[in-house]
């Protein structure tokens, strides 16, 4: 029923040949978006969530999408994940249509809430995508254990989600996304609901994980400090209609500790992001 993706007429998901894509960054573009728009047909009045968005994300990048709420950050991430279909424009994920990429399980998605299944313990939650992939039981277990260890939750395999704190639950959901061993990790405000201390801690964890694994991350946030601390590039967005205002390179050293937030370089980039966000606001007010 869902083996081969049916060809689509709107051209929205036509794969973009890698050669024709202009290389914005140093690596090979893993996500390539050209002139993408998305309009939600709501009951009263259609909402333009994304308007003419173009963005190219290179392999190994850590890209943050930042902007006030309602500017289409989640929508853009969901389009990349094929959870939402664009109205027009082209998008390619690893040279494939988003649907093909989804069916090949090329990305891991971390949602705003942990979305753990309460009837499964921590280990079985992490094994869920591996069961769907059809991996043998022994391999599922080894992989789940390895990812839980990576997010610092070794020893919690038999716990149930409700027995963990919010931060631990979100780490389980990151381990679950990592278990698929994707090259691309999509994270939608994963630490938005957590307190600042836990959040700092998890940010440090995430940047170390990114450096150790070399994965490409697309990270949605509305915290400037979080974006600057984690990213190699920051995409500044603005609402009504959702669009990209600026893409800011964040050339801090790849190896980062929380102390980096006290440096003048950090402050300079944060200032640029703040200025970019202000620009967007002058449009509506």
């Amino acid at each position: 029923m869902h083996t081969a993706p049916p060809p689509r007429s709107d051209g929205a998901s036509t794969p973009v040949p890698a050669s024709s894509a202009p290389a914005d960054g140093p690596g090979h573009p893993i996500v390539d978006i050209r002139g993408l728009s998305l309009i939600y047909p709501t009951a009263d009045q259609p909402v333009t969530a994304l308007s003419d968005v173009s963005l190219s994300i290179a392999k190994g990048d850590f890209v943050s999408l930042i902007g006030p709420s309602g500017c289409g950050k989640t929508t853009l991430l969901r389009v990349i994940a094929d959870l939402e279909r664009p109205t027009s424009g082209r998008i390619a994920v690893e040279g494939l249509s988003p649907e093909q990429a989804r069916l090949k399980r090329l990305y891991g998605y971390v949602f705003q809430a942990p979305a753990l299944y309460p009837w499964r313990n921590v280990e079985r939650n992490v094994m869920l995508p591996l069961e769907i992939m059809g991996l043998p039981a022994a391999e599922r277990r080894t992989r789940a254990r390895a990812q839980l260890e990576r997010v610092g939750l070794a020893g919690f395999e038999r716990k149930f989600p409700w027995q963990l704190s919010g931060g631990m639950q979100q780490r389980v959901s990151i381990a679950r996304a990592l278990a698929l061993q994707p090259d691309l990790l999509l994270l939608d405000e994963p630490f938005g609901a957590l307190d600042e201390i836990t959040r700092d801690h998890l940010n440090l964890h995430l940047t170390q994980l990114w450096r150790a694994t070399g994965k490409t991350c697309v990270f949605v946030t509305h915290s400037i400090a979080e974006a600057v601390f984690l990213s190699t590039r920051i995409v500044v967005m603005s609402p009504r209609p959702g669009r990209i205002l600026d893409v800011i390179d964040c050339d801090l050293p790849r190896e980062r500790t929380l102390d980096i937030r006290e440096t003048p370089e950090f402050a300079a980039i944060a200032h640029r992001v703040r200025e970019g966000l202000k620009e967007g606001h002058s449009y509506d007010d």
Partner: peptide, 10 residues
């Protein structure tokens, strides 16, 4: 969100 998760796994 739970349904989206399953969809993301294909």
């Amino acid at each position: 969100i739970q349904l989206d998760l399953m969809r993301s796994y294909g």
